[in-house]
Each structure stands twice: as structure tokens, then as C-alpha cells.
């Protein structure tokens, strides 16, 4: 019944290496999706019509740019939360984590609703066919990439809520806060993936309009 006792520092170093190896592995998963994107789309990408809501005219490209900006900003607050807990500022930690969660949710809803489910009919927003997963390779790859990424955002949000709760209970100190560090680098990793995905989906290649849309 002896415990394999290792110091917190030693175990943290191992954890850190393990986590980075996990990222390496995951990057092959996301890399595979990028391979599928370049293999199937080539130098094209789906392009949707611009949207008119009442007097507003919104270029379709603006919405992805906005959700990308939100995700980058959330990464900044995540960094702030980590710095705070590492330097004994619990209040800023709590606030920053909650801000990160909020922005993560905005990003997620942006993907779920504006990406996947939004269309305007006569100036009214309706949920429904924008581009659907059955729309050939364009739908398939778009949903595959954003879906796999959204899955990681959701798990990141769960982790964020967990460390927020633990932080509230005073579990972390400047010396022992691996939980926060892990959540932070995971969240940044999700951001990192989006750095690759955003141009691949929205910027690179020639936009192709759907016939009949």
C-alpha cells in the first residue's frame, strides 16, 4: 500500500509533457481534417450570399471574422486568469475565467446558429438551411471541421467551469495550480486550431456560390 510519492513539481513536469504530447496527437486529427479539406475542396470554398437584415447589409465574411475575434479575445482572458492565479490574485482569476466562458459560449453559438442554422428570408432571420451536411463535400467538410472544433470548445468550457469552481473553493495557489495551467493551454490549443481552420474555411481559395441559392 505504498504510494508512489513524487513531488508536485516533478509530477507537473510530467503532466506538462504528457499534455503537449496529447496536443501533438490531436494536431494529427485536425491535420487530417485539413488534408480532407485541401483534397476535396482544392482551390475552392463554399461562399454564401450576403445577408440583409432590415436596413443592415452584412457581408457574409464579416460573421466568421467576428467569431474569430471573440475566440482570440477569450484566449487573452484565459491568459489573464492563469497569470492571476499564479500571482495570488484570486478575484481577477474568477472574473477572467467567467469572461472566457462567456466568450467561448458566444463563439459556440456563433458556430451553431450563424454557421449551421441561419438563413434570412425576406429580411427575417430563420433557423434552417444555410448549408447542410448533405450538401456534397462542401457541407461535409465544413460541418466536419467546425463540428470537431466545436466538440473541443464544449469540452474546454466544461474544464473552465470546473477550474472556476475549484478556484472559488480556494484550491489553487501560486505554487500548485496545474489544473488552471492545463485548462489554459487546452483553451489556447483550441484557439490555435481555429487559427488554422479559419483561413482554410473562409479565406483560402475561390468562393463558389451554390446553384439555386
Amino acid at each position: 500500500m505504498t504510494a508512489v510519492a513524487e513531488s508536485y513539481q516533478v509530477q507537473t513536469r510530467r503532466n506538462r509533457m504528457g499534455f503537449w504530447l496529447f496536443f501533438l496527437s490531436e494536431s494529427f486529427l485536425f491535420g487530417g481534417l485539413l488534408v480532407a479539406r485541401y483534397y476535396l475542396w482544392g482551390n475552392t470554398r463554399p461562399s454564401m450570399e450576403d445577408t440583409v437584415i432590415g436596413p443592415l447589409h452584412i457581408s457574409y465574411q464579416v460573421i466568421p471574422l467576428m467569431i474569430t475575434a471573440v475566440l482570440l479575445l477569450s484566449s487573452f482572458f484565459m491568459n489573464r486568469a492563469e497569470v492571476a492565479i499564479a500571482n495570488d490574485d484570486r478575484k481577477t482569476f474568477s472574473r477572467s475565467i467567467l469572461l472566457t466562458v462567456l466568450m467561448g459560449l458566444i463563439f459556440l453559438l456563433g458556430v451553431l446558429i450563424f454557421e449551421w442554422g441561419w438563413k434570412t428570408v425576406d429580411g427575417q432571420i430563420v433557423l434552417g438551411r444555410h448549408i447542410s451536411p448533405t450538401d456534397g463535400v462542401f457541407g461535409a467538410v465544413l460541418y466536419g471541421m467546425t463540428g470537431m472544433h466545436a466538440l473541443h470548445v464544449v469540452s474546454g468550457l466544461v474544464l473552465l467551469m470546473l477550474v472556476w469552481n475549484l478556484g472559488r473553493k480556494g484550491h489553487f495557489s501560486p505554487e500548485k495550480h496545474w489544473g488552471v495551467e492545463a485548462t489554459a493551454i487546452y483553451w489556447h490549443y483550441v484557439d490555435l486550431v481555429w487559427v488554422f481552420f479559419y483561413p482554410a474555411i473562409y479565406l483560402i481559395g475561390v468562393g463558389v456560390h451554390a446553384a439555386g441559392h
Binding site: R90, K91, R168, G170
Partner: peptide, 10 residues
């Protein structure tokens, strides 16, 4: 037990 807003080394 109340958790103070800042740690000892703040």
C-alpha cells in the same frame, strides 16, 4: 471557510 480575494503574496 471564507476564501479571501487575494492570496498572501499578492
Amino acid at each position: 471557510a471564507a476564501i479571501p480575494a487575494h492570496g498572501p503574496d499578492y
